[in-house]
Each structure stands twice: as structure tokens, then as C-alpha cells.
Amino acid sequence: MCLIAWNWQPASPTPLLLIANRDEFYARPTLPLNWWEEAPILAGRDLHAGGTWLGVSRDGRLAALTNYRDPAHMRANAPSRGELVSTFLQTQHSATDYLANLVKHAADYNPFNLLVFDGQSLMGLESRHAKVITLKPGLGAVSNADFLTPWPKLTGLKDGLQALLIQDHPRDEDLMALLHNPHPADDARLPATGISLELERALSAAFVSLPNYGTRACSVIRFEVNQIHFQEQAFDAQGHIGTRKFTLPWGLQTG
């Protein structure tokens, strides 16, 4: 997952609304959004390493992951970061306890940001700093840098989500339109992450489209009073290849 924005309003009819894009090489084998046979997880699946980038569980947990862009410190033999998402979705530990344990081992992985929701608390972990964050109600976002780092694609998505939230119940198609934005940022606003200017420019769009790499999934997740709605649009190098929608029962945990 490379771009996530959310609105966390625990006292509202939609306690958590999350939208996200996953960018990946087109050649990396992936299963679309579905229930996993061996675990109570609703998520897409990375067939290369077996984990996932974004998912929910039958008991109303959520986890999402972005890689931190730092090509100089990537290790080919590091364990898959996608397992951090699927492990949280299967545990009964609170978000606080899960991240407190994970932070001790975060350096074993290539750099990442992990967002977790246990039905009560929304929290994040920045692995580079071994830093656990309790996220306050309101709008938030993360891309391939630390939480809320104002990269153009992050601020654009966050601002677009804020504009839509003026409506009582923004439509999924309008939320997806934010994720489909193909426009790169001006060069003067680009971050410097150790890659070429041409690649930095291409990756600055919310929706990435390169010959061998691009946005593979656009997702909208709504935690409502009694239900969770999860929609995923899947893409390959030729374009949109399918949409999947699931609804499951849920109730906000209190106390």
C-alpha cells in the first residue's frame, strides 16, 4: 500500500472511513479482495510472500501498511512486511499491545508504516523511529514517508477527502475518483528520496501508471454503526480488471 487517507470519528455514524491505493509491479502475482480460506481475513493477497497490504477481519479489526521509500537501506533478505497486516488481523491483542511488541522487532523488516484499528483505537507505527502513534479523531494520511509528511499526493488526497466530507455520506464513486487522480506534482514540490527525478515525478500522482509498475488496487472501507463495507477496484497494465464489494456485520467497541 502506498497511499492511505482516513477520517476517524468514533462518535459518528461512520466511525472510520478509509481510502487507499496499493502500488506494485504488475508482474507480482496477486489475488483480489476475498475471504481467506484459512483465516477470518477479508483482503487481497500477495502470492509472492503470502501477506497483504490492507484488510479487515470478521471481528472488525483493520490493518494497512505502506513501505517507507528508502532505496539505500533495502535488504533483499528481510522478512515480508505484509505478514504484519495478516498477523494483526488474526490476533486478539489490542492495537496498543500488538504495536508495543512489534516495535521491539521493527528493525528486522525493511522500513514501513503500519496502521491498525482494533475496534476501539486507531494507531500507527513508524518503524524507522520505532515510534508508536495514537491517532486522534479527525483526518489523517500516510504515504511512503512518516505519517502526515506533506508529500503532494498525500496532501492532495487528504484535502480531497476533507472536501467530500462536507456531504453527510460521500459516494464511493467520488471517493474512488480521488484515488484515480493521475496528475503528477510540479517538480518544485517533489520530495527527494534517492530515486531519479523522472521516477519521483511519476510516483507523485495518487494513481501511478508506468510500463511495469503502477496502482494495482483502489480501496474504500467504511466502518458504519452496524456494518463494514469494503470495495476494491483492481488494475493491471491494461487498466481496470474488476471490482469487488463485501459487507460484514460490525459494532463499535466501547470501554
Rank of each mutant, 00 (worst) to 15 (best):
R189M: 11
P191V: 02
P182N: 01
Q162K: 11
L175D: 01
L197H: 07
A188T: 14
D187W: 03
L190T: 04
P182R: 09
H180P: 00
L165H: 05
D174G: 09
P170R: 00
L157K: 01
N181T: 06
A177Q: 14
D159N: 14
L164E: 06
D172S: 10
E173H: 14
D159Y: 06
P184K: 00
L157T: 04
L197E: 04
Q167Y: 13
D159H: 12
D186T: 12
Q167K: 15
L190S: 05
P184M: 00
A185I: 03
L179A: 07
L165M: 14
H183V: 11
L164Q: 10
L179M: 10
Q162P: 02
R189L: 14
L175R: 01
L190N: 05
K158F: 04
P191F: 00
R171F: 10
Q162R: 04
L161G: 08
H180R: 12
P182C: 05
H180N: 09
R171A: 15
L179P: 07
H169I: 05
A185Q: 02
A185W: 01
L178T: 06
M176C: 04
D174R: 10
H180I: 02
I195C: 12
L161Y: 11
D186W: 07
E173L: 14
E173S: 15
M176Y: 10
L197Y: 02
L178R: 03
N181I: 00
D187S: 12
D187C: 12
S196E: 01
D168K: 13
A188S: 15
A192H: 15
Q162F: 03
I195K: 08
R171K: 15
H169F: 10
K158E: 10
A188E: 15
Q167N: 15
H180W: 05
R189D: 14
D172Y: 07
L179N: 05
I166V: 13
P182S: 04
R171C: 10
S196I: 03
L179W: 06
N181W: 02
L164G: 07
L197D: 09
D187N: 12
G160A: 08
L165R: 07
A163V: 07
M176K: 06
I166Y: 08
L179T: 06
A163Q: 12
I166E: 10
E173A: 15
G160I: 04
A188G: 10
I195V: 15
P170Q: 06
D159C: 11
D172R: 03
P182W: 01
I195E: 11
M176R: 05
A177I: 09
Q162G: 12
G160F: 03
A192D: 15
A185P: 03
Q162I: 04
N181M: 00
I195S: 11
A177F: 08
G160M: 03
P191L: 01
R171W: 07
I166P: 00
L157W: 04
P182Q: 06
H183C: 01
